[in-house]
């Protein structure tokens, strides 16, 4: 059978990304132009600036994806693009470019949900995952637990009621003066401190469901910092370590609980926060004790990238689930 080559385009937040993936799993190129340095001075992603950078970078990023793969534009079979969820102005740049590119090449357009892409990042690297499975989606915008019957069939069994995990990392890191983005900043600070020296709550809500809440933990961390401030120089590292520990423990425990209740033997992790080393280690350790396998994408595929978009779109291409030219972008999550 002929190889199917899909170009993926991703501009939902502050990364302009393009990638070419063969048959849904062979990454031929994976180009990411990150704007983190630009947004750092604002302490977070500024949507208008992100959109401005996307329109400046998109053509070069896509061209580089072809160069890296050693392919010409005509070689691809379809054009996949993230059309939800994300920053609307940012999504529209990638979507409009993808439409023009696909239309002019006379190739089908494929619409991808960004979060489906994050989940699929696991399959890009591990074709041996056995389903059903439980998947923990943790990013700056989302914290959800999914019960996955198969690659493309899943139900949300729990979500955060307030802040997403990544959002809590960002807010606390900013409050502690650790910088942006918060996830890597807290991880770095935590490595210099020790969890347990100061005490923060583990917020489980109802121990028997899969709902999350991080705003209480966030506020507790901020209040504690206000009290500690000035007293002890190294305290910020201990606080960062305790905050990370408190958040990660809840994520791990609820994921394991879900795996047991749904009787699955695989846990998948997806999204930017899945890059957190402490989360990866603790999840593997605790799951190992229960004989549950843990899968998580390699670090470059945890954060936003277009390989996951091109990868999942292969399956849409095969079933001819093409998107129309009047496809729109949507900032919120219509359905997971």
């Amino acid at each position: 059978m002929k190889d199917i080559l899909i170009l993926g385009i991703e501009t939902s937040c502050d990364e302009t990304a393009a990638s070419i993936v063969k048959n849904g799993c062979g990454i031929l190129s994976n180009v990411i132009n990150s704007q983190i340095n630009i947004h750092q001075q604002f302490g977070g992603v500024v949507p208008e600036i992100a959109s401005r950078k996307h329109i400046e970078n998109i053509a070069m990023v896509v061209d580089n994806a072809f160069k890296e793969a050693g392919l010409s534009y005509q070689d691809i079979d379809g054009v996949a693009v993230t059309n939800q969820p994300g920053l609307i102005g940012a999504l529209l740049v990638g979507l409009s470019f993808a439409k023009g590119f696909a239309w002019a090449l006379d190739r089908p357009l494929l619409a991808v949900n960004h979060l489906h892409g994050h989940i699929y990042a696991n399959i890009l690297e591990h074709q041996d995952i056995s389903f059903p499975a439980v998947c923990l989606v943790v990013s700056g915008g989302h914290t959800s637990l999914l019960h996955m019957k198969d690659i493309d069939s899943y139900a949300v069994i729990g979500e955060t009621r307030d802040d997403a995990a990544g959002e809590a990392f960002d807010k606390v890191a900013r409050f502690l003066g650790l910088g942006y983005p918060g996830g890597p900043a807290i991880q770095k600070a935590a490595a210099l401190g020790k969890a347990g020296k100061v005490k923060l709550p583990r917020v489980y809500l109802d121990k028997n469901d899969f709902e999350f809440s991080f705003s209480g933990l966030k506020t507790a961390a901020m209040n504690l910092w206000k009290k500690m401030k000035g007293n002890e120089e190294l305290a910020v590292f201990d606080l960062a370590a305790e905050f990370q520990q408190a958040l990660v423990e809840v994520l791990v425990e609820k994921s394991l609980k879900a795996a047991k209740i749904y009787q699955v033997d695989s846990i998948l992790m997806a999204g930017g926060v899945a890059a957190n080393q402490h989360l990866r280690l603790l999840m593997k350790e605790k799951a190992g004790q229960e004989n549950i396998k843990v899968f998580c994408p390699s670090l470059p595929l945890c954060t936003d990238n277009a390989a996951m978009i091109a990868g999942i779109a292969y399956h849409q291409y095969i079933t001819k689930s093409y998107a129309p030219l009047d496809l729109n972008a949507y900032p919120g999550l219509l359905s997971l």
Binding site: G94, G100, A104
Partner: peptide
């Protein structure tokens, strides 16, 4: 940006 992104895609 919608118009310009589309035109960039077509142009390439």
């Amino acid at each position: 940006r919608i118009g310009m992104a589309a035109v960039k895609g077509i142009s390439m």
